[in-house]
Nucleic acid binder design. Structure first.
Length: 465
DNA sequence: TCTGGGGTCCTAGGACCC
DNA sequence: TCTGGGGTCCTAGGACCC
């Protein structure tokens, strides 16, 4: 028995914990450059605004229905995700955190606990302690829990939990499920199944012979189909494995033409990637960079990527920045308006198993490691990525993403008692309530804030030493 | 005018080996 | 005129996920 805990409209729900007056109102969360819809409230879904579509096509609808739009605030979403997951872990040690808003629970050994009742308790605790609504599906396989959670969201009378484990009516659900809504069937496969083979529902798909599935949807598709028939093929993996690749990329807030500006962006993104690399105690053997112009602009198109192995695997930011700067010089072409740049680290290996080469100067290695250690400690301690940075990363970043509708960057603390009161009375919180949102004001500048913080820290350290 | 970011896995095909 | 068979490894690209 497996359960899936799935947060409803996660990013929108996060914004609503900051500002509960958004409850019941149409709300959208936008991608990094405020260009694309990445989360919608139920009210917005009902209005027909599609997921992952460009927002500018819905200007009129936004105005007409007074839809509230927010820039993505991933710091906030990560914090709330961690809170949700920590409640989930209270209910079982066997948890696979599958994404920012989803977790699978291995329920084996918990069947006797009356799963619906037990997990309804989980749902209520997440709701009260974190303020995020979740839907929970229970079934024999991961793919079936996805189906259950999907139906659960659409039927409020289920109170957030649908158990289809051993349910003889399982195929009734599959009969009414469009093939494109399946976990493992994306746009391309859905179009092929419907247009070429007239296979429209999940039930029609699982009625095909294995050989046909293997030929058309490959091994991943066959696993999915077996899972829909009730045979587990995708295990719950409670132990998370280290990443195989780390990438940092952004679309620019404006077009960028010059090599120095691209280098600045590459350095900044590499700084971020390296931080993650070291947080996982890994080193990279290969690093690369890619750039491209606006892919929707047919007149002028250029995109290129390049990567190369390092003479010595490392997580030392200065070396990796120098490496991608050299690579960037090779693919940069003058005269183009660049829209996006990204850096990629691959061939990752545990830092403690690092291979040295014949020429490696171990003394330098140790010194570099100590520098990065101190670097990370300070940036972690003061909860900012920009307390200390490399000069190559620049300070102005005039090309950075638009984020014109940020809610708040400050950590959110909500007193559970206060939330309970809010939920039961359903009244708006008073002005002094901790639920009150910290509105983004235009004077708030993260860069300036961190410079001020940096100054404070520097003064403190100097007075001490 | 305006179109995200960060991942995983699988497959086909090419290079190379003997 | 006539040109094998059996492998491995790597990479780019395509599918998928949230």
């Amino acid at each position: 028995m497996i359960a899936l805990v799935d947060c409803n409209n996660f990013y929108v729900s996060c914004e609503r914990t900051v500002d509960p007056s958004l409850n019941g109102k149409p709300v959208i969360v936008l991608s990094n450059n405020d260009g694309v819809v990445i989360s919608r409230s139920n009210e917005v879904k009902a209005l027909g605004v599609p997921m992952a579509g460009p927002i500018y096509m819905h200007r009129d609808l936004i105005k007409k229905h007074d839809i509230k739009c927010f820039s993505a605030n991933f710091n906030l979403y990560m914090q709330l995700s961690e809170q949700v997951m920590s409640v989930v872990r209270d209910f079982s040690p066997e948890v696979e955190v599958y994404s920012v808003d989803e977790a699978f629970i291995d329920m084996n050994g918990l069947e006797w606990k009356k799963p619906e009742q037990y997990l309804r308790g989980l749902r209520n605790r997440v709701s009260i302690e974190v303020g995020i609504p979740v839907s929970i599906g229970i079934a024999e396989t991961k793919t079936l829990t996805k189906v259950a959670a999907e139906f659960c969201k659409k039927d409020p009378s289920l109170e957030g939990v649908l158990n289809i484990y051993g349910d003889p009516k399982r195929n009734d659900y599959l009969r009414s499920l469009p093939v494109g809504d399946l976990w493992g069937v994306g746009r391309k496969f859905a179009a092929m199944l419907i247009e070429q083979y007239n296979i429209k529902t999940a039930l029609e798909l699982i009625s095909q012979p294995d050989k046909w599935i293997l030929d058309h949807l490959h091994i991943g598709g066959l696993k999915m189909v077996w899972e829909l028939r009730g045979t587990p093929c995708i295990p719950v993996e409670a132990n998370l494995s280290p990443p195989k690749q780390i990438m940092r990329s952004r679309s620019f807030g404006r077009y960028v033409k010059t090599l120095p500006e691209l280098k600045e962006a590459a350095a900044l993104f590499m700084g971020m990637a390296c931080e993650s690399l070291r947080a996982h105690n890994l080193v990279a053997g290969i690093a690369g960079v890619f750039i491209h112009t606006n892919r929707f602009n047919q007149d002028e198109k250029y995109s290129n990527s390049i990567n190369d192995s390092l003479s010595q695997p490392t997580s030392y930011t200065p070396n990796l920045i120098a490496h991608v700067h050299r690579l960037l010089e090779q693919i940069y072409r003058e005269g183009y308006k660049y829209q996006k740049l990204g850096v990629i680290l691959t061939d990752l290996a545990p830092a403690k198993e690092m291979q040295l080469n014949f020429y490696t100067d171990e003394d330098t290695l140790r010194k570099n490691e100590a520098v990065m250690n101190t670097f990370d400690k300070l940036n972690t301690k003061y909860r900012t990525n920009h307390l200390i940075m490399l000069a190559a990363e620049g300070t102005e970043h005039s090309w950075r993403s638009k984020q014109e509708h940020l809610s708040t960057d400050k950590p959110v603390f909500v007193d559970p008692a206060e939330r309970t009161r809010f939920m039961t009375t359903n009244s708006l919180p008073s002005k002094t309530s901790p639920l009150k949102s910290t509105k983004h004001d235009s004077a708030f500048d993260p860069a300036q804030q961190s410079r001020a913080l940096g100054k404070q820290v520097a003064e403190r350290m100097m007075s001490r030493d």
